[in-house]
Nucleic acid binder design. Structure first.
Length: 491
RNA sequence: CGGGGCGUAGCACAGCCUGGUAGUGCGCUCGGUUUGGGACCGAGAGGUCGGAGGUUCGAAUCCUCUCGCCCCGACCA
C-alpha cells in the first residue's frame, strides 16, 4: 500500500499475520488456537488449558447438545474419575483397546494402593457397575444417562483440541431391554450429532458405520460422523456405539422381563468431545483466522467504535452502547470493544482473527447520519461491508447472522464436494486421497483395508448409510463389493 | 520407542565457531501526537542464558552428563 514501506515495517506486518493455510496448515492451526486465545499449552506435555474464549465456545456446544439430549429423554449425572483397574479388565476387547493409554494411580495418601486406580479413559465400566446395581426389572428400563466430564488417554502425539491427554466431552450411556431399542438409540444419537453439526456448527458431515478395525474397543457396532477439514483430511466429529450385551455380560447388568426370566441388557454409549472445536477451526477458518458459526460463536456481533477527539469518543460510545444494549436485549451476543489506544484497523483484524461473525462499526459520521457499517466475517473486505440505518438494526443483524450461518455451511459443503472423488481405479484412488475423500468400493476385508492404509496412509472413515446397493469391484482387490466407503487421511 | 530440530526477557530470535559490559524486534508500562482496514515518537520495566558438573583468572560461548519442548514415523475421540 505505502511505497515507502520499509523492510522493518513489512516484518512487523508479517508478525501480525498467520502462516497461510496453503503453506503450512498445521502451523496455521497451532498459531490460530494460541492467538485467538482459545487454548494454551499446560506445563504437562500433551495437556491443554482451555481459555475463556475457547470455553465459551464449548459452553455453547454443550447447550446445543444438552438441549437435544434432554428433549429425547436423557438426564445428566456424574460418575467418578477413578476406576478400579480390575473393572477395565472385565471386558476383553475393552482392556486390549485401552490398556496402552491408561494413566494409573498407584499411591494415595502417601501409601501404595492395594489395587491401582485408573483415571477414566471413558466410563463404560464404572457406569456398567452402577447399572448392575440399579437395574432389576424391565420396569427400570430404559436407563438414559449422560455425563459432561473429562477423560484421560495417554496419547503419544498430541495437538491442541484434536488430541490431548485430557479432553472434555460428554458421554452418554444407556441400557435397554431389547436389541432393537438399543440399535434405535445408537442411531438416534448419531442423528442428533448430525443435526447438531449441520445446523449449529454449519459443518456438513457424513454419517456412517465404522469398519471392524476402526470400531470402539468393546462395541458390536460403531457409528460416526465424518467431516472434511480445510486441508482435505477427515476428522471423526462424533461417535455412537451399540455395545450389544458385551458390557452387560461383563458387569452383570440384568433385568427380569415380564415373563419372569432374567435377561442381559443391551447398552449403548455415545460421545462428542472438545475435538469438535478443532473441527470448527479447521472447517471454517481462513487465512485471516477463525470464522465461527453464529449459532455457536461466543460473540456474535462486535461493535467497534471509531473516534478522534474526546467529544467524538463520548458521542460514539453513547450510540455504540445503546446499540449493544438493544442487541443484547434481543438475545444477540454482542460486545462493545472499549479498548482505548488501538486503531480501528487493528481491532477489525483482531476480531476477524477471533472469528466473530459480524462487526458493527460506529463512527462520528454514523452518529450524525443515524447509520452504522456492518461487516460480515464470511466475506472479507469491502464485499462484506454495508452501510445501514441504525433503525431496524436488530432485525437486520439477526437476519445477517442467519445468512452467515448459511453461507459457512454452503462453503464447507462446496469444498467437501469439490474434494471428494469416486475413483475408477487404484491410481485415481491414490491421487484422490492426496487431497480429499475417496468414495470407493471395498470388499470388507481387513487385508485390503490394511494394505490401502500402508500404501496411501488413507483409512476407512465410515461406510455411509446412503448406498446405491448395486454391486461392483473392490478398489484394491477387484473382488465383489457392494458397499462404497469413505477413504481419507485422518486426524 | 526410533529419526530430526530447538532450549538466551512474555513471544520471535541474534550472540556461541574465535571465552572478557547479555543484545535486537514485537509485546508490556508511562508521556505525547494519532485513530473509517494491522499508527508514530520519546522514556522505562523486564534475564539464576533449561539444569548439574567440569576446564579456565574469567563460561551464554569450550567439554561431560542430564531434563524439557517441538516436528516426522508405529496407537487414538
Amino acid at each position: 500500500m505505502n511505497p515507502e514501506s520499509t523492510p522493518s515495517r513489512d516484518r512487523r506486518m508479517s508478525e501480525h499475520k498467520l502462516p497461510s493455510r496453503a503453506e503450512d496448515f498445521a502451523e496455521w492451526y497451532n498459531q490460530l488456537v494460541l492467538r485467538a486465545e482459545l487454548a494454551d499449552y499446560a506445563p504437562v506435555r500433551g495437556c491443554m488449558i482451555v481459555r475463556p474464549y475457547g470455553w465459551a465456545l464449548w459452553e455453547n456446544i454443550q447447550q446445543a447438545l444438552d438441549k437435544r439430549f434432554k428433549a429425547t429423554g436423557h438426564v445428566n449425572a456424574a460418575f467418578p474419575l477413578l476406576i478400579p483397574r480390575s473393572f477395565l479388565e472385565r471386558e476383553k476387547s475393552h482392556v486390549e483397546g485401552f490398556s496402552p493409554e491408561l494413566a494409573v494411580v498407584t499411591v494415595g495418601g502417601g501409601k501404595e494402593l492395594e489395587e491401582p486406580l485408573v483415571v477414566r479413559p471413558t466410563s463404560e465400566t464404572i457406569i456398567g457397575h452402577a447399572y448392575a446395581k440399579w437395574i432389576k426389572s424391565y420396569r427400570d428400563l430404559p436407563v438414559l444417562i449422560n455425563q459432561w466430564n473429562s477423560v484421560v488417554r495417554w496419547e503419544l502425539r498430541t495437538k491442541l483440541f484434536l488430541r490431548t491427554l485430557e479432553f472434555f466431552w460428554q458421554e452418554g450411556h444407556t441400557a435397554h431391554a431389547t436389541y432393537t431399542e438399543a440399535a434405535a438409540e445408537t442411531r438416534q444419537m448419531l442423528d442428533i450429532y448430525t443435526d447438531f453439526a449441520v445446523n449449529e456448527a454449519a459443518i456438513p458431515v457424513i454419517p456412517g458405520r465404522k469398519s471392524d478395525s476402526e470400531r470402539f474397543a468393546g462395541a458390536d457396532e460403531t457409528y460416526s460422523i465424518e467431516a472434511m477439514m480445510g486441508d482435505g483430511k477427515a476428522l471423526q466429529a462424533g461417535t455412537s456405539h451399540n455395545l450389544g450385551q458385551n458390557f452387560s455380560k461383563a458387569f452383570d447388568i440384568r433385568y427380569l422381563d415380564r415373563h419372569g426370566e432374567l435377561q442381559y441388557c443391551w447398552t449403548t454409549s455415545w460421545g462428542l468431545s472438545t475435538r469438535f472445536i478443532g473441527a470448527i477451526i479447521m472447517v471454517h477458518g481462513d487465512d485471516k483466522g477463525l470464522a465461527l458459526p453464529p449459532r455457536l460463536a461466543p460473540i456474535q456481533a462486535v461493535i467497534v467504535p471509531i473516534y478522534k477527539t474526546d467529544e467524538e469518543r463520548a458521542s460514539v460510545f453513547e450510540t455504540a452502547q445503546r446499540i449493544r444494549e438493544e442487541l443484547v436485549a434481543n438475545d444477540i451476543r454482542a460486545k462493545l470493544d472499549e479498548r482505548d489506544g488501538l486503531t480501528p484497523g487493528f481491532k477489525f483484524n483482531d476480531w476477524e482473527m477471533r472469528g466473530v461473525p459480524l462487526r458493527v462499526e460506529v463512527g462520528p459520521r454514523d452518529v450524525a447520519n443515524g447509520t452504522v457499517a456492518l461487516a460480515r466475517r464470511d466475506k472479507p473486505g469491502k464485499e462484506g461491508k454495508s452501510f445501514v440505518k441504525q433503525e431496524g438494526l436488530v432485525a437486520l443483524v439477526r437476519e445477517t447472522l442467519a445468512q452467515v450461518q448459511q453461507s459457512l455451511h454452503q462453503r464447507a459443503l462446496a469444498f467437501r464436494e469439490a474434494n471428494t472423488q469416486e475413483p475408477q481405479g487404484y491410481d485415481e484412488f491414490k491421487s484422490a486421497v492426496e487431497r480429499g475423500f475417496a468414495r470407493a468400493r471395498w470388499c470388507g476385508s481387513r487385508e485390503c483395508e490394511a494394505k490401502i492404509k500402508e500404501e496411501t496412509k488413507a483409512t476407512t472413515r465410515c461406510i455411509p448409510f446412503d448406498q446405491t446397493g448395486d454391486e461392483g469391484a473392490c478398489i484394491y482387490c477387484d473382488k465383489a463389493a457392494r458397499e462404497r466407503v469413505i477413504f481419507a487421511r485422518a486426524y
